[in-house]
Amino acid sequence: MSIRKIIHIDMDAFYASVEQRDNPELRGKPVAVGHGAARGVVAAASYEARAFGVYSALASVTAMRKCPELIFVPPRFDVYRAVSAQIHEIFRAHTDLIEPLSLDEAYLDVTHNKQGITLARDVANTIRSRIKEVTGLNASAGISYNKFLAKIASGYRKPNNYFVIPPERGAQFVAALPIEKFHGVGPATAARMHRLGIMTGADLAALTMDEMVAHFGRSAQYWFDLAQGIDHREVKPNRERKSIGAEDTFGQDITTLDEARTLTRPLINKVWAGGEKRGLYGRTVTLKVKFADFEQITRARSRPEPVSSAAELAQAVDELLAQTFPPRKPVRLLGVTISAFTPSSSTATPKQMVLPIQD
């Protein structure tokens, strides 16, 4: 098989950079896109704000505590979508194999690009220069022979830079990579791997296939391949996201409604920030509950209109929690997911809810 040429383009602090571009008074200052209300959440942060530890999905009150000079700017998703459309038009001048991940990042397969440029690095830098010329914004790029490594590479020298991981360096690069950087490794999986003594790609690659199967079951081949720098996933145009979710496994099982409400707040903030970042607003809220004996249940409710704020999402989750707590046995994990995105999610902001939750 021929070696693919994959680029991952990631705009630098996209929402915040658009706001700083359009308002000169914000340039060089710590900016957070979002609402500074008590139950608000940061959708995006400028690099000046990140220096204080302010990042997306952080609660607004926590962000203000970290950076008292933080300037909150309400999101303008119509503007972000318009800029994203300009960026995608630039992508299409080079390839039709574009897989959007959100408004500000995408995979491009430029193995056979329209401009006939030999090196993927040169394609990436041509795109970055054109984005700067058209939008005034900076983009970073990762270039490699698969999606896994291209995405890792795009964040390697941020902001406003690029990084290449060629095929001959793939396995070596992965060997030194912390396991938390692997695609598909969240906090729970990372903790599990740490208990097995797996801290880096080299530790993962040291396992035999039999050991992989014993530890990871049906996912064994996936982890075996990634440990060797192999990722067979193709760049898929028109990729449609069905849901946005977050979950957490607790260090100690919980049994009370107050505990559940407290522990789901970070999940709600993360889910809401993820939806706002992508311009996706759903009608169905799902609560996932895993008990101490690993039995799992879900509870869901759907609305006639999309959930229109983090507070409404929290209200929906609280109602689902109230149906479950006190539980019949201790709970080790809770998850929150929003789905059933409306057809207009990618082109319009959500309307204010006026109807109650319906079963």
Rank of each mutant, 00 (worst) to 15 (best):
P306N: 12
T249M: 07
V79R: 14
D225Y: 12
F77W: 10
D203P: 00
M353F: 09
F148V: 03
H94G: 03
T118A: 15
D12T: 02
G155P: 07
V354D: 10
R241I: 09
G142P: 03
N160I: 03
I3E: 13
P75K: 02
R299Q: 12
R27E: 08
L58T: 05
H194W: 10
Q86K: 13
D253K: 00
A45V: 02
L334Y: 08
A260C: 06
P330D: 11
H194V: 00
T324M: 13
A85S: 13
A63F: 09
A32G: 05
P343S: 06
R233G: 01
S302G: 14
G142D: 11
W272G: 04
R332N: 07
L119D: 14
L149T: 02
I254S: 06
K147E: 09
E240R: 11
G28I: 01
E133N: 12
Y80D: 05
L149I: 02
Q352C: 03
W223V: 03
P100M: 05
R21M: 08
S309A: 12
P166L: 12
K329G: 04
L204W: 04
K132Y: 15
E295F: 13
K5F: 08
A322W: 13
V73G: 10
L320A: 05
R218M: 10
L70W: 13
V354H: 11
D231G: 11
E48P: 01
S46A: 03
S302F: 14
N113L: 05
R128D: 12
A292P: 01
A16M: 07
A273P: 04
E99Q: 15
T208P: 06
H112K: 10
R299G: 06
A220Q: 12
A292G: 04
Y80L: 04
S243Y: 10
S154A: 09
K277S: 13
A59V: 03
G36M: 00
R233E: 13
L280R: 07
D293S: 08
I9M: 14
L137V: 01
T95G: 04
N269K: 02
A206C: 03
V110N: 12
R4E: 10
R157D: 08
R92S: 15
G28V: 00
R301V: 12
Q296T: 15
I71H: 01
L101D: 05
S309L: 14
P75E: 12
P327M: 01
F52R: 00
E319K: 07
A106Q: 12
R76W: 06
T95E: 01
S46R: 02
I230V: 15
D122K: 10
I268Q: 14
G279F: 08
R239Y: 15
S129N: 14
I90T: 10
D258T: 06
E276W: 15
P74H: 13
L26N: 07
D22I: 02
T349L: 11
K147I: 02
H8Q: 03
P306D: 14
G274I: 00
F91V: 02
K290R: 15
S243R: 01
S46P: 02
G142L: 10
L333M: 13
T324R: 07
T342M: 12
W223T: 05
Q352W: 08
V134D: 01
L257I: 13
R241Q: 11
F163T: 00
H232Q: 10
V42Q: 02
V271Q: 06
A314M: 13
F52N: 00
A44D: 08
K270D: 08
E48D: 05
V42P: 01
V331K: 01
E259F: 02
Y55D: 00
Q252W: 09
T337F: 15
I297V: 12
R21E: 07
T249F: 12
